[in-house]
Design a protein around this nucleic acid. Structure first.
Ligand SMILES: [Mn+2]
Ligand SMILES: [Mn+2]
Ligand SMILES: [Zn+2]
Ligand SMILES: [Zn+2]
Lengths: 142, 142
DNA sequence: ACTAAGAATTAGAATAATTCCAAATTTTCA
DNA sequence: TGAAAATTTGGAATTATTCTAATTCTTAGT
């Protein structure tokens, strides 16, 4: 039995060669592995730096390409807060983002059970929501 | 009695020389007037173009300076959607933004009566929210 | 296996929104 | 009235991201 701590950094070779209809190239596999390895919200350049550790030849352009592919295939979430550069999130469950003003760090925040968008917003009938983003800023508890 | 339609474009000289502790210079007055003149969500460059009509000597740098001053004094709201350039909103009431995917246009959306943030999000106790942004994308009703 | 076609990667250049800078102008108020 | 402070201005700088065109890799059909 392997503890959670030990399997923090999954072996990229574990991913199948195709995921959600996306061809899993070496680089995409590595970028995805980098993002899944930690529960944080790195910027493209952070992903680049981390990916270079195991794959020194990868380029920043490729990291951007891979991120865009992974995001559009819903394997990674892209997170935009204010005017800052994009961040990437491994958490695919329904959640939103809280930025702690002290540390700049981003925390995942979940919705209370059973809350639905239609319950809180005055949307004209016929409206179809394809994308929703909620972000908060302030001082995070504890 | 003046109809709403007639007073759509307020005379900038109507604003007092100081507002919310912000010195109302000619340029700030003009930028604010431009934003209040229409209920849309123009980008900085749109504001610049409109301001130039009545004030041909104003510079883009000044428009950015004025916008930043007006936003930080809560006379105008800054709206950021995804990776697009910032937009500016004259509506100071509590609302969020819906971008219609067809037209790219942004619609104000209000919350249903009595909805409070604590009701919908699982925030650790002690959390202080200083800023909240909700944005949606999709096809807008009708 | 061989090969052509398509897809992905790469380095470096280009883009564009925004910020910075330093000089000129305007405003404040002692 | 005359500093001192604040604002405006044009232009340069910044920087995250996208684009380009050449190269490499992968796939599928033979
Ligand atoms: Mn924190
Ligand atoms: Mn619409
Ligand atoms: Zn997240
Ligand atoms: Zn608005």
């Amino acid at each position: 039995m392997i503890s959670l701590a030990q399997q923090k950094n999954p072996d990229p070779t574990d991913f199948p060669s195709e995921l959600e209809g996306l061809r899993m190239t070496k680089q995409r596999r590595e970028v995805l592995a980098v993002i899944l390895a930690e529960r944080d919200h790195p910027k493209a350049n952070d992903v680049f730096t981390r990916a270079q550790k195991r794959m020194p030849t990868i380029s920043l352009a490729t990291v951007y390409n891979c991120l865009e592919a992974l995001v559009s295939h819903n394997l990674v979430r892209q997170v935009n807060l204010e005017r800052e550069s994009s961040r990437y999130c491994p958490n695919l469950t329904d959640h939103c983002h809280f930025q702690d003003e002290k540390s700049g760090k981003i925390h995942d925040v979940v919705f209370k059970d059973g809350v639905k968008l239609e319950d809180i917003l005055e949307l004209p009938q016929g409206t179809e929501v394809s994308h929703l983003e909620i972000s908060l800023k302030g001082t995070f508890g504890q």
